[in-house]
Amino acid sequence: MKLLVCIKQVPDMESRFKVNESGDWFSEADLAYRMNEYDEYAVEQAVQLREQLGDSAELTVLSIGPDRVVEAIKKALAMGCDRGAHIQDPAVHKKDPWQVASIIAEYARDKKYDLIFTGMQSQDRGSAQIGVTVAELLGYASATTLVNFEYADGTVKGKRELEGGIKSVVRMKLPALVTCQLGLNVPRYPTLPNIMKAKKKEIEAVPVGNVLKEDSLSASNSFYPPVKSGGGVVLEGDVADLVDKLVGILKEKNFVAK
C-alpha cells in the first residue's frame, strides 16, 4: 500500500512579521521555521498506519518550497516516513492554492497512492483548500477535519469534528485523502536514533517546473497588519508595577473588593 503525507514548513507564529520588499508576503529574515502544526498530526497518523501495515506499506512525505523545507521533511523522516520528495520552489508563496494543489496532484498522479494525508490547513495561509483540491484533481474520496482515524480492509473510518465539538462519523473506500485536525493523535518527538536513521533516507528533489502545469486562479499583492479596532489599554513594564496597575483596574471594575 502506498501512502503520501503532504507537509508545509511555516514560520513560528510567535514571530514578528515584517512585510517583504515586494509587499506581498513576510520577509524571510529573522524567522524561525517549523512544521505546520496541523501537518504534525497528519505525519503521525500516516506513520501509525505505516506501522500498522508493516513492510507492505511505503510512506512518502512531500513538501513544496525553498531549500529550508528539507528540515521539515527530515523531521517527518525521523518520525517514521520512508522517503521524502522535495518539490523545489523558491517562490511558493506566489502560488495560489489551486497551483499548490495541482503541483501535488501532478506529482502524485502516476504514483497511484492509496491514501493521502494532509493537515486541515496551514497556520500561515489557512485556506483549508489544498487537501480537498488534491483529492478532487485525483478523483479520490476525501473528508476533512478528522479527529479520529481508523483503517481496515481498504476502508477508512473517521470522525470529522464539527462546531461545538460534535463529531460526524464517516466512512470511505480507498483511494482516499484525509485532512487532519489538531488533537487527532499525539505527534511523537523524533528520537536521536531515528534522527540518525533518517539521514540515510532518500529525498527526491523535483524542480517545480517539472510539475507545475497550471496558471493561478487568484492573486494577492498585499500583506499588512490588521487595523486596530479595539481601544484597549496596553500595559508594559516591570512586573510589580503591572500587578499594581492590574489590581487597580480590577478594583475599579469591582471584580475585587476595594
Partner: peptide
C-alpha cells in the same frame, strides 16, 4: 486573515 490572524491580505479572484 493570515499568519494565525496576525496579518491580513487582499485576495483577488482572476
Amino acid at each position: 486573515g493570515c499568519c494565525n490572524a496576525k496579518m491580513r491580505r487582499i485576495v483577488k479572484p482572476s
